[in-house]
């Protein structure tokens, strides 16, 4: 995909010599707000928004910094969510093959939250490796179509696999305990989710500003040039894809514990569309944009839910308006006004 996508971020980066200081200030403000927030706003809503924020940041790592539009990211979030929910609630692994009816089968009982989340992350990373290896074989617009089609395949798998319980999903997933703290209390769970979000967020910041991240940005700006400089572009793309998938999985696994359910909604293509929307409205290729976008969209879904399908229409309108008139997104516009890199 060519360079035009996140040009705003590139401009902003040039305009900000002391970007690291700006980041530290913005990060401190965000953290302070998030620590204070649960005493004002309903913590369950905040947990959901934080999980989506991490999901959108992970998605943005691909589109904003490598220029790859994945239109099937819901598969990583949703699949990891199912794995974590299943392990935290039932705790069994079953590889019985559908046609033959035999295969290894272990049952070990519910796992603690961190282990369940870690397993979700590993599974989504493996899925990311598989999907990424296929999808990076084609460029540009085909990449988006391939990820969308493979995500639909994962959706049908989740619809039919026995452990996901089809249309019902996995309900009343226990949150368990962490270091003796009972996570079933919303406020304790909130700080657990916040810790995971901040870890993921800082990791993404670190990746973007590492030498590895610089190569990713080079691929985004001019893939042919990166190849001619001797970088094996496919490997970098695949690595970025797997990282993004794993972090999306982290968001999904955490979400299924925080919301105590895993359902088909999270693997559906409309969810893949929503994460694109969050990132677009916040600002492609900005660090804080996806977080803002996720809060905006989740709040919109929350408060407009009584209006039924009007929400879908609203989302469509936001897409159209963003693409036609607001391509830099909220944070991208702010960054341009303040001449800062956000």
């Amino acid at each position: 995909m060519s360079a035009a996508a996140p040009a705003a971020a590139a401009q902003a980066a040039i305009a900000a010599p002391d970007a690291a200081r700006d980041f530290r200030i913005a990060f401190a403000i965000m953290t302070a707000l998030l620590i204070a927030a649960p005493f004002v706003v309903y913590p369950v809503f905040l947990m959901q928004a934080l999980c989506f924020a991490l999901f959108a940041c992970a998605f943005n790592l691909l589109i904003g910094y490598v220029g790859l539009l994945s239109f099937g990211h819901a598969m990583f979030m949703g699949f990891a969510g199912y794995i974590a929910a299943h392990l935290a609630k039932v705790g069994s692994i079953d590889f019985t093959l559908p046609l033959i009816g035999v295969g290894p089968h272990w049952r070990f009982g519910p796992l603690p939250p961190l282990v369940a989340i870690a397993a979700g992350v590993v599974c989504s990373a493996l899925l990311g490796l598989l999907v990424g290896a296929l999808a990076i074989r084609r460029q540009g617009i085909y990449f988006a179509m391939i990820t969308l089609a493979l995500a639909q395949m994962v959706y049908f798998f989740c619809l039919q696999a026995p452990f996901t319980h089809g249309e019902d999903g996995i309900q009343s997933v226990p949150r368990g305990k962490l270091l003796g703290i009972d996570l079933s209390v919303d406020l304790s769970m909130y700080f657990f989710v916040l810790a995971i979000f901040l870890t993921g967020f800082l990791l993404i910041y670190r990746i973007i500003h590492s030498p590895f991240g610089e190569v990713l940005k080079a691929i985004r700006e001019n893939e042919a040039r990166a190849v001619s400089l001797g970088y094996s572009v496919d490997r970098y793309k695949l690595a970025a894809f797997v990282l993004s998938a794993a972090l999306s999985g982290l968001a999904g696994a955490t979400k299924s514990l925080a919301m105590q359910n895993a359902s088909l909604t999270d693997v559906h293509w409309s969810m893949s569309g929503e994460v694109v929307l969050m990132t677009l409205i916040g600002g492609l290729g900005t660090i804080f944009g996806p977080v803002v976008g996720a809060f905006v969209i989740i709040a919109m879904l929350q408060y407009l839910s009584p209006f039924g399908q009007w929400v879908t229409i609203m989302q469509g309108v936001i897409f159209v308006v963003c693409v036609l008139a607001f391509r830099r997104g909220v944070i991208g516009e702010l960054a341009a006004v303040w001449r800062k890199s956000l």
Binding site: M1, S2, A3, A4, A5, I63, L69, F71, G140, I141, A144, G273, V276, L280, G308, Q309, W310, V311, T312, I313, Q315, G316, V317, I318, F319, V320, C322, V323, L324, R327
Partner: peptide, 30 residues
């Protein structure tokens, strides 16, 4: 709409038409 996207990255066309699909489908679903 689409005319204004000339010269931009492919992905914007995909995103715009995805938005249009949501509007049309949401309208009929309503």
């Amino acid at each position: 709409m689409l005319q204004r996207l000339a010269g931009l990255d492919h992905l914007y066309g995909l995103l715009l038409t995805f938005g249009l699909a949501l509007i049309i489908q949401g309208g009929f679903q309503n």
